[in-house]
Write a protein that binds this DNA or RNA. Structure first.
Lengths: 242, 242
DNA sequence: TTTATAATGTGTGTAAATTACACAATAAAT
DNA sequence: ATTTATTGTGTAATTTACACACATTATAAA
């Protein structure tokens, strides 16, 4: 305890000067928004509006304001750029190389989200905002390729630990759609019978008592995901292992 | 393509003014350093030198300088505060609530490391720097309890996916020590025979042809971890499942 | 020097989970 | 009525996880 006295205790004022000193850095958020359509995993991109990267594709990003929480900044940016709301965003990684931005030091925090393309129509389309096939992305602005890759890896891992994928599907979906989704994300074929078995065993799917419409073959049963039941039993969720 | 012309392209100069504007935020790094000693998981803490938190324990942290990479900052801070080097640090999460620091806006990036307490003697002991039992931490300064918890969760998960734990052990270790380590991190008892079986099956342990010394019972075999072989076969590593 | 103690080191049977795999049923399109 | 495409289901084989017991080896105590 005597050592406390020997320490150089910093007062609030002293700290404030440190915090407000030149030691400040521009902080940005970049969002990687995944969607699922036509049995393909998609990602939402805009044309970069930075001269150095003209023509290249870019993630949805902006600077964080000094008075806003990091998470709030991510939601704000997404809303501003796309009109999207009512979704969840999850932080993935922070990219802090000094050389990553041509205009100076900008540290960027990457956020990831999964949304259903049909339910979330884009309301703003500036800068050629649109969906791109996830496995055909290349040659992005800044270090956005690295950020995208990190988020894609995160998604592949995360989707096997938590039932995130359902956020990409319509409320009602067939097991075939669900399997297509997992196959798209994990980029591998899965056995249909074992896939079914696995998901029914989890017991989080609710039979809607309806079948698919307008399909040129035997229609499949429609299900919804029981998010409430999942939330209650979260601890018991063993993950999915393919 | 015509749309590019309609866009408001930002020149480098314009960008620079944005980046250098008031939109800047103090950025810090906080390090959670885990160690293992006396069969207990430990973590390295100092007394907070901030008046508001006098007497409370704090992680090792400092502001990131504008001209240093985020990762480099983490290594520098660790070196400065403890004299430690030759270790790996991994980024875990970024904490960005506006209210987390009493002196103003400071966003903090948490880094985690695992070191062997014997091999890395602390060279600086300012602010009562020392090892604390990980499961007895409470009442920390700032939001450091939340940061610590996040890192502890990260460790529990990570250690089952990658052979991180070996960084906490001496070069040569017995299987009992290895098991003690896993039991300490995961906070549960494991079956000795199955534990052995699992690690031998991985085939990354090298028999050193020596036994333990000075133990009051039958000495156990000493092994080392074959990092090189692991690096080569990384893709095949299935993780550890207890 | 004998005995007690406290570990290490090993093998086997059982249960559980995962995988591979084939055929009947259904609706739509022709 | 036939073809086509896809849904829906069961079982056997294999792999993996788990529970468990006993002989061995060194130290410490008597």
């Amino acid at each position: 305890m005597s050592q406390i006295k020997e320490m150089n205790i910093k007062t609030l004022k002293g700290l404030q000067s440190e915090v407000q000193s030149i030691n400040r850095i521009a902080l940005s958020v970049d969002c990687v928004i995944f969607g699922f359509d036509e049995n393909k995993l998609k990602v939402l991109l805009i044309r970069s509006d930075v001269k150095k990267f003209v023509g290249k594709w870019s993630l949805l990003g902006d600077l964080v304001k000094p008075e806003e929480d990091l998470d709030s900044a991510a939601y704000r940016i997404l809303k501003q750029r796309t009109g999207l709301k009512d979704l969840f965003l999850e932080q993935v990684h922070t990219f802090g190389e000094t050389t990553r931005h041509p205009a100076g030091r900008v540290v960027s925090v990457a956020y990831c989200s999964l949304i259903n393309i049909q339910n979330h129509r884009l309301k703003i389309l500036d800068n050629e905002l649109h969906w791109h096939e996830a496995d055909k992305i290349s040659d992005m602005a800044f270090d956005h390729q690295a950020i995208f890759n990190a988020c894609y890896n995160w998604l592949q891992k995360r989707v096997q630990e938590h039932p995130l994928g359902f956020n990409l599907l319509p409320n009602k979906f067939s097991l075939r759609e669900l399997q297509n989704l997992y196959e798209a994300i994990l980029n591998k074929k899965l056995d249909r019978r074992n896939f079914r078995k696995k998901f029914f065993a989890m017991d989080f799917l609710v039979d809607m008592g309806e079948d698919e419409q307008n399909v040129p073959h035997r229609p499949g049963r429609l299900y919804k995901f029981n998010f409430e039941k999942y939330e209650k039993n979260k601890k018991k969720w063993p993950g999915i292992d393919f």
